[in-house]
Design a protein around this nucleic acid. Structure first.
Lengths: 105, 105
DNA sequence: GCTACCGTTCGACTTACATCGAACTGTTGG
DNA sequence: CCAACAGTTCGATGTAAGTCGAACGGTAGC
């Protein structure tokens, strides 16, 4: 209806508010996923999901959306699957030290 | 003694979860207050409130409670008034670099 | 001692978010 | 092609959080 493209929209980090990033990270499930991506690099959605707590895929997709809209991750089509990547370099530039502090805990 | 009986409870920072801190900081009103305290040091509740956006005192008190329960601020009686202080040193020890990154933006 | 003052707590209301099943869309393997 | 697959979106539901007026409890000034 709205779009036939598999590409999802990713915000420019210049437009992202710190409060939105902090909110996205304030959920334990999402925080775990970010940690996951920080250590493992790019993963497919299924891989992310399998390692974290067991949660229905619709719920997981919702969290992914929250992280994506807050500029934390990229979610891109890769054949029949999808890859998820932490936007680390961009985040480090936009919010220096934030990711490091969050991941250190 | 002049020590007041109206002490509020403050969590030990060892017991606070990162996600709770991030959540507390994810609200713009609360984030502003933390910034306020970071630059001005200890303030009375009235002083905090007067500088930030105009909000009813009950609402403001609610935000203060959220910050207090997340271990971000101390709220202590001071005569007829109350002082609010950022728990900076403790936070820096518990979550190194976090406050700096948040305040830098 | 009253009384005005500062700030928290209470209660009611509204809105935002989390959760999950089911339906849907695009994609590839056979 | 078409059937199975990978994930997102939709819709419904429960719960948590924000907002605010009013009531309450200490404290100090007079």
């Amino acid at each position: 209806m709205t779009t036939t493209t598999r590409e999802l929209t990713h915000p420019d980090l210049a437009d992202v508010q710190l409060s939105a990033v902090l909110f996205a990270l304030s959920d334990p499930t999402r925080l775990d996923l970010v940690r996951q991506l920080a250590t493992d690099g790019t993963l497919t959605v299924a891989e992310c999901q399998s390692i974290g707590a067991e949660v229905p895929k619709s719920t997981f997709s919702h969290h992914l959306k929250t992280l994506r809209e807050a500029g934390l991750v990229r979610n891109e089509p890769a054949g029949r699957k999808r890859t998820v990547t932490l936007r680390r370099a961009e985040l480090d530039q936009r919010f220096p030290g934030l990711l490091a502090a969050v991941l250190a805990d």
